[in-house]
Amino acid sequence: MLEIRNVNVVYDPNTIFRKEALTNVSLQISSGESIAIIGKIGSGKSTLIQLFNGLVKPDEGEVLLDGVDINTKNVSRKEIIRKVGIVFQYPEEQFFAETVFEEVAFGPRNLDFSQKEIKECVYDALRVMGFDPPSIIHRTPFSLSGGEKRRVAIASVIAMRPEILILDEPTAGMDYAGKTSVISHIREGRTGGLTTAFVTHDMEEAFYLANRIIALDSGFIVFDGSPEEFFSNRNLISQIGLEAPFVLRFREKLLDCLGEIPFSKNLETLVDLIGAMIGH
């Protein structure tokens, strides 16, 4: 389990550009959760996820992984990086290897896994991301489509067998097809027991993919709970500059003229319900 306790992070503390990036942040991430971290640009989302594996150190407070403070001297950095894997924005821009196998094997190899383990990790990770390993491992990652590249980049972190997978805007800049494939495979990975936390600006993605929402505003956690509870709090959503998914906004607007409409997360189901109500 990962736990953040009363953390403050301040950038450029003794300059006129001083910025309090996170203030008094506390949270716990338990096994099997899928957490969407949302908020406007500059609200502290990226700082928060970089705390998770020690890339950013708190000015005050603690980051505990399985009860151990990861920022103490005797903790192995390699072990932390292996346990908490981070996929940054546009991860495919960091590709360097000649083949997909070598790209995905880079992490496990640096963690001193054996040859047998490396092969197993690479194959397993590619399978989680929806690939048939033998048909892709010899290809150059640069020849793949946008969606495939992003999935290979995510696989290269999964190959290190992290306990928690952190993704910073996993579908940013992707078209419909790429986005759909990345989302469906993250969802499948989650079904397989992978703990995930992802930053997103896409409220539909947060609504459909997460079972918990953490909302940040100006460095403070302003909400930590279920997607249903968050998206039913219209005041909070507009106060922090976000908007509810279309399916909820649309249903709400229809309530005035159609009366009570059963709640549905699914747009097709909502349309069927509307059709049944106005078709007669």
Partner: peptide, 23 residues
């Protein structure tokens, strides 16, 4: 549009379904 990898705005998508049902 979907067949060439382009996403559809949700309202346009809803309208297209309702049109198919002649609603």
């Amino acid at each position: 549009l979907q067949s060439i990898g382009i996403s559809i705005p949700p309202d346009v998508y809803v309208a297209s379904i309702l049109k198919k049902k002649h609603l």
